[in-house]
Design a protein around this nucleic acid. Structure first.
Lengths: 359, 359
DNA sequence: CGATATTTTGCTACCGTTACCAGTGTAACC
DNA sequence: GGTTACACTGGTAACGGTAGCAAAATATCG
């Protein structure tokens, strides 16, 4: 008799009870506006029909609000979970979301098809963009969408977007200045992707001199600034498309093969630095006697490994990104929150093997 | 003149051009059905009005499909990003989602308020439940919702849900048998939360003898089975509410204080084992001479630390969870996918310090 | 040139809720 | 008894789109 089973809805249970859909809706959304009697009946009928509460999609359309935050990560999404710095950021962001009763939507872009379809389809109120290079096509899709946006780390120009991150340039500059002060003159850099199409090899100046579209370029800029202030010459950069220990190891070999005279290598992330350390030891180099190696991020493992690195508060970064997003009004001036960084001098750095006699 | 600015919509750009909303919709969803001429005009008008494409919420309501996967994690969500095993799982799952052009929604439950509101509001087609204990109230909310579901690791009974995980009981049993074979008789366990309300201390039998509602209980069951098969007596268990190195260290101290005669300690996760190793060394114990320590998971750090542990394929686990979810038909028998585990004997295990003279 | 095939475009029901406001019924008060 | 107040409940118009098919426009063909 029951007409052929459709999915239950507000209407179907309203019909069964002979009340209005509005009453059923109120039972779920403002229980205090419905008498205990009716509420009980509604809940009973719902249980009977197997109705689990208002359909989230319809509710969102109607309310114009999703209570969900979108998160845009670097294209190869697995990376986000391999990198301890990103993981810590996620921890902070997820915590902020939980506190604000928001869910967190990870935008998963299939390889290649990066026209931003996934961004366009994401049902979210706003976006957090983490570690994505300025030229990523998905960024444009985010900008087109209405709604608040927070950019993390990357130096993106986005109208109305808030920003949180460290001062990458300044922090790197301090690091390089410290190395120079301790006598280093021949310094090299190992970098993850500088943006644009994936590239592996020596980063010629064409790649490095662009307008900074990524934190990596800013860090390189900081190191260069220190070098030229110290009257030291050019800066070899070895780039790898990904941020992994394997890439770091590989890059160190390539860099030292090309420039055997380097006394210090600055990796632009701790993960790269770990790989570089492994590779250096494999080459029989003593750290830091034969080679100084530094990282960036100060992930938990860095302390254990005694890595000299630049510390930044990752969890806090995530929390602040969330707070900025949730506190955005309809239209205000973009805010920038610069995070404190601390240079952590540890065991992988020291004076160069052949200290400059002038010092 | 332009009537007071509303948000642009299909209708508003259709009105501007004098075409139908259907045509505008087709421009976005089936471009090949619209002449290049009209398509161009639509896109131009859209750009002019600042329209970024069909509203995702409306589209979802209409299509009855969200192309989004929900992920339910243990209540304290930060944990998911601190634990390398979970991170690897996420990597696999996110990869599967990307391949299937699905986004991934992390359900972030605010502390305390675990009535499952966030689950009910999640706009998803299906759910993956990872490492959640059977008695978590949010699990019920998932079960009530229509749509496919995959349970990972935990021994939940959920109608129609697929399952993927290792055979925790069997794997632990093999581990314990190996320890017994090498002479150990007095073995202890360090566990993360066994489910139920948070508890810290010696897990009396009331907690351990329950019907298994978590992987931890299954692992303990496996160890016990090996012990009783080997004629060895009871099994002290030290429980901590969370899965962290600090908890592992703390638990080891408590366990050895209570039972100084133990020759082997099985931590139910690598993370706990790392903490236990630190604590053991702090107590002046030589590993494995004075104490054998084992883990579970074989996270990347385990190999570096030389930890004896049970390996399971985390990334694959995530990938399979995704594939199971995406391949669920309207109604079929639940599938179970058991993952291969491998006992990795490394440097933290060996014969007990005072080998039984009978051997 | 009429008829048929092939593109293009438009019509029109919903999708399942919720916000707003208007009712109705009961209790309290003068 | 007649108001006024209060507590519930109901009506209904959106929210912004999409699918499927009908209609119109254009192209193809003998």
């Amino acid at each position: 008799m029951t007409e052929l089973r459709r999915r239950p809805s507000l209407a179907s249970i309203a019909a069964e009870l002979g009340v209005s859909t509005a009453t059923v809706s109120n039972t779920y959304n403002r229980p205090e506006r419905v008498s205990a009697d009716v509420r009980g009946k509604v809940l009973a009928a719902a249980a009977k029909q197997g109705y689990a509460g208002p359909d989230p999609a319809a509710r969102q359309l109607r309310r114009g609000r999703t209570d969900t935050v979108g998160l845009l990560l670097p294209a190869e999404i697995g990376y986000a979970f391999r990198d301890p710095a990103t993981a810590a950021f996620l921890e902070g962001l997820a915590g902020a979301c939980a506190q604000a009763s928001q869910n967190l939507l990870l935008v998963c872009s299939p390889a290649g098809d990066d026209d931003g379809t996934q961004v366009a389809h994401a049902v979210v109120d706003g976006f957090v963009i983490y570690g994505v290079a300025a030229d990523d096509p998905r960024v444009r899709r985010v900008a087109e969408r209405a709604g608040p946006c927070v950019v993390v780390d990357a130096p993106l120009e986005m109208a109305g977007a808030d920003w949180v991150g460290p001062d990458d340039g300044a922090a790197s500059r301090v690091l390089a200045e410290t190395l120079i002060a301790s006598g280093h003159r021949r310094i090299g850099v190992i970098s993850y992707s500088l943006g644009g199409s994936p590239y592996s090899g020596a980063a010629e100046s064409g790649r490095v001199d662009r307008v900074p579209g990524s934190a990596a370029l800013q860090r390189i800029g900081g190191i260069r600034a220190a070098l030229s202030a110290g009257g030291v010459g050019e800066l070899p950069v070895e780039e790898r498309p990904e941020n992994s220990a394997a890439a770091g190891a590989d890059a160190l070999h390539a860099l030292l093969t090309r420039r055997p005279d380097l006394t210090a290598v600055c990796a632009l992330s701790d993960v790269l630095a770990f790989g570089a350390l492994t590779a250096a030891r494999q080459r029989g180099l003593r750290i830091p006697h034969d080679l100084t190696v530094t990282g960036f991020d100060d992930v938990p493992e860095a302390a254990r490994a005694g890595l000299t690195t630049v510390a930044q508060p990752h969890i806090e970064k995530g929390r602040i990104a969330g707070q900025l997003l949730f506190s955005q009004g309809p239209s205000r001036a973009p805010r920038r929150h610069t995070l404190q960084t601390v240079l952590q001098m540890r065991a992988t750095s020291g004076p160069p093997r052949a200290a400059n006699p002038l010092h």
